[in-house]
């Protein structure tokens, strides 16, 4: 089974040299630690391309934050712009890929990650725009919830963030692609058998 960092490292393999990429909050943020020598430009949808690492205490700048409202730094390649232009490049398909967290995904590529009715009302932020606009959507999430129930479903039960938008799912148990008729197993995580992966998945798995 993969831990958070191993999932992030696996997700980093999705990125190719020269890509402009948006990373969501949580495990996706860790993906930046594993891009290695690849030339990747990170977008922060509040209005920045070329996001750098977290600042040292001396570098902290209240005018420089990422989409998770964390303080960050700039790089030599950095550019700033307003939120309308930022989502123009997202909606316009200029961002090659987004790596996002999820509460639920379904076998048809539906994604739910923005609210739990009656319990948690935070909002979708930029997630709906991202999944509708970017070239490729990779979801990184735990395969099951804390009760052991599958989060990789036949149909989402929570309000959707996007319909038929997910291309690839990376979980602590393995990697699955959304294909015609269901999900196809790409690989199993270290120490996980295909039977274990299938047993933890409610969604239909096709060969």
């Amino acid at each position: 089974m993969w831990d958070r960092n191993q999932m992030a490292a696996r997700a980093a393999q999705e990125l190719e040299d020269g890509m402009y990429v948006n990373l969501g909050i949580g495990i996706p943020t860790l993906v930046a630690n594993y891009v290695g020598d690849k030339d990747i430009t990170l977008q922060s949808e509040n209005g920045m391309l070329g996001m750098g690492p977290f600042p040292t205490e001396a570098e902290i700048d209240p005018d420089l934050i990422n989409a998770g409202k964390q303080t960050i730094t700039e790089l030599a390649r950095t550019s700033y712009f307003d939120s309308a232009m930022s989502f123009g490049m997202i909606r316009g398909g200029k961002i090659a890929a987004a790596i996002l967290g999820a509460m639920e995904v379904a076998e048809n590529g539906d994604l739910a990650n923005w609210m739990i009715p009656g319990k948690l009302v935070k909002g979708m932020g930029g997630a709906m725009d991202l999944v509708a606009g970017v070239g490729r959507v990779v979801v990184v999430m735990d395969h099951t919830n804390k009760h052991g129930d599958s989060k990789v479903l036949k149909e989402c039960t929570l309000p959707l963030t996007g319909k038929g938008v997910v291309n690839r799912i990376i979980t602590n148990l393995g990697v699955l692609d959304v294909v015609e008729g269901g999900l196809r197993i790409v690989e199993c995580a270290d120490g996980v058998t295909e039977d274990q992966l299938r047993a933890a998945t409610e969604a239909n798995i096709v060969d």
């Binding site: 949808e45 939120s83 309308a84 989502f87 909606r91 539906d110 930029g126 509708a132 959707l160």
Partner: peptide, 30 residues
Amino acid sequence: FNPQGTLAERMRAGGCGIPGFYTKTGVGTQ
């Protein structure tokens, strides 16, 4: 609730004399 980019574009459009626009964002959702 407005998706973030939809909210930004609603403001930009309103300021540019554009009363409405079509977007893929949110299709199939609430």
